[in-house]
Design a protein around this nucleic acid. Sequence first.
DNA 1: TCAACAGTTTAGAATAATTATAATTTATAA
DNA 2: TTATAAATTATAATTATTCTAAACTGTTGA
Lengths: 142, 142
Amino acid sequence: MTKNFNFIEKLRETGLRPTKQRVKICEVLFNRDKTFHFTINDLVKKISEELNEKISLATVYNTVHALQKKGYLKEISINSDKSYFDTNTTVHHHFYDEDTHQLIDCDENEIENVNVKNNITGKKINSVEVLVRVASDNQNQN
Amino acid sequence: MTKNFNFIEKLRETGLRPTKQRVKICEVLFNRDKTFHFTINDLVKKISEELNEKISLATVYNTVHALQKKGYLKEISINSDKSYFDTNTTVHHHFYDEDTHQLIDCDENEIENVNVKNNITGKKINSVEVLVRVASDNQNQN
DNA sequence: TCAACAGTTTAGAATAATTATAATTTATAA
DNA sequence: TTATAAATTATAATTATTCTAAACTGTTGA
């Protein structure tokens, strides 16, 4: 049950013109139960799988960045060769599975509040986020 | 006072052949008081500034990765367009100054131990690291 | 309703970081 | 010293991302 109207409204509210492509990208991103973690490549793949459509790479980049700038998406740095995005835009923590390269949200109560006792003078803290790297117990040589 | 012998020994110990280039890179990286945070580009620049030498880009990449694999360097992900490395290879936390794009080590006592209460089943925790993003108080529009 | 215009999309070129290749050179063990 | 395995190098290739300029589309207001 796809409620595109939602997205059209949402996009309009933030001053993004609700074009066909943007609405479709929003469908793929936000019509989900769970948070969606993805790279641009994942997203392009999903679009062609789920919608059977081709949206130009440039448009996907533009749209994702537009959504991010407007606060609908959050960029997450895990490794340096790719950008990950997260549909959960709140400040929250992650597990990163080094075997499968999967990113998993931490439940709020899985990590205690992190207490930063000192800060750089003259600066304000924008976010405090924890990355827990996990891997299967065996393959740890070399 | 450059003690290359140290590096020659150290490299040899871990099974890295102490070539001219590797020893020079080690000098630049490890003959410092403070932890050194750098991108490959920073490093290449430092090499040509401090040693007045040109080491091929490929060699710098290879060497940095070799050092990293052997545990002399640690890779850190802040943003996705570049790899940062850190000569402090212990598990520790960082401030990232979003204005200047500088990475700063947290002192051990600046952040309380992070308590991860739940883990992904079947996986073991490799590291738990905090990134505190800071920025100057003003420029926060858009 | 429709014209006009600004904002979008698009394919493809350009760029930047990184990795691969293959020939040459070097460190080291015998 | 010499053979050989490993390292270095310049350069090409690759990959992720951004830019560009032309074509297209959503929106505004006459």
